[in-house]
């Protein structure tokens, strides 16, 4: 097990190195940072000084190495636009995105699994058919359209929920949370539904089809033949086996939720890292873009690693295959 984890951590690091290379390359190939940082009134001297200060006069690999070194210490340089350390800006923005993603993820997973199981067990029922048809809308409508529709119905027409922003936030130990105020919670509802709906339908359809497949297996027939209660057959035997393939997808979807937050944050003017990234693109604010890229890939890689390790605890066959042989 340890050997397996070490191997996976190694692979993860390799992925991060490559993403780091891409992020770093942006500095050299997208626009000229000096242009961006110095205004019109610049002298050749200014340029040379800044060049040296930023280390832009060194070779590519030296620069890359420096970039990695700095990144490891959580230093991604200074935002061209705001003139403040990128790390500070990101940390300020991260809670908004993480809270939104967490709520969306939890909604998507809970409802996705529950509805998937329901539509599999009652597959000929009228409700199951209704849910399956409705889910087609969830997968086919683009996220921004769902967001706009929700805003139209619940903010414009009914006036129940805010259409933009996070509401009031409270700072707890340096973390700005919207969970503790009424307006903060209200503000979370529409964006998290918008962000989680696609993932929820995806998880639901996957759980349904995997579960139908599992319900056809011999061991389910045998469980029935032993007179086990429906609840035990469906949840103890079938659901557990269903989750084995579903977990990978859920892991990937969680990563996707954080990445897709860009669109939702734009629609709802949600002050998270996604919106920050969109603004950074408009201003070619390379340090912010690079740091965002790194942040997202660290999350993706981290989630994948967690999923792989989770497998170990769910599926005994993997434990045997991977540790038995050393």
């Amino acid at each position: 097990m340890l050997a397996f984890i070490i191997r996976r951590v190694g692979q993860s690091l390799l992925v991060l190195l490559i993403v780091g290379l891409v992020a770093f390359s942006m500095f050299n190939f997208v626009g000229d940072p000096i242009d961006n940082m110095l205004g019109q009134e610049r002298t050749a001297e200014d340029i040379a000084r800044l060049r040296e200060q930023l280390g832009l006069d060194r070779s590519f690999f030296v620069q890359y190495f420096r970039f990695l070194q700095e990144a490891l210490q959580g230093n991604f340089g200074v935002s061209y636009r705001q003139g403040r350390p990128v790390t500070d800006i990101l940390l300020e923005r991260a809670p908004a995105t993480l809270e939104l993603a967490a709520v969306s993820g939890v909604l998507a997973i809970l409802f996705g699994i529950a509805l998937g199981v329901f539509t599999a067990i009652r597959r000929d029922g009228i409700w199951a058919h209704a849910i399956m048809s409705a889910s087609l809308i969830g997968v086919s409508l683009p996220t921004f359209l769902i967001g706009i529709l929700l805003i139209y119905v619940f903010s414009v027409e009914l006036g129940w929920l805010p259409s933009f922003g996070r509401g009031d936030v409270v700072t707890v130990g340096g973390w700005k949370t919207g969970f503790l105020t009424e307006s903060g919670l209200k503000a979370l509802i529409l964006p998290s539904i918008t962000l989680g709906l696609y993932q929820m339908t995806l998880i639901m359809r996957l759980v349904r089809s995997e579960m139908l497949e599992v319900l056809r297996q011999d061991y389910i027939r045998f469980a029935r033949a032993r007179g086990l209660r429906d609840r035990a057959v469906n949840f103890r035997h079938a659901l557990k086996n269903t989750m084995v393939p579903v977990i990978t997808v859920i892991g990937l979807q969680l990563g996707a939720i954080i990445a897709f937050a860009i669109i939702t944050e734009t629609v709802f003017q949600w002050p998270g890292v996604g919106l920050l990234f969109i603004n950074a693109i408009q201003f070619v604010d390379i340090p912010v873009m690079a740091a965002y890229l790194m942040l997202i890939s660290v999350m993706f890689v981290g989630i994948n690693l967690a999923v792989d390790i989770l497998y170990f605890f769910i599926d005994p066959r993997l434990r045997a295959d991977r540790t038995g042989g050393h």
Binding site: R221, F222, R226, G227, L228, H237, K240, V244, R317
Partner: peptide, 20 residues
């Protein structure tokens, strides 16, 4: 089922739940 009537299936490789 199970209490009064027991059943043995053909393929023991697939009759047992692999996760339990």
């Amino acid at each position: 089922r199970g209490k009064e009537i027991g059943m043995v299936f053909q393929d023991p490789l697939t009759s047992l739940n692999p996760l339990l």
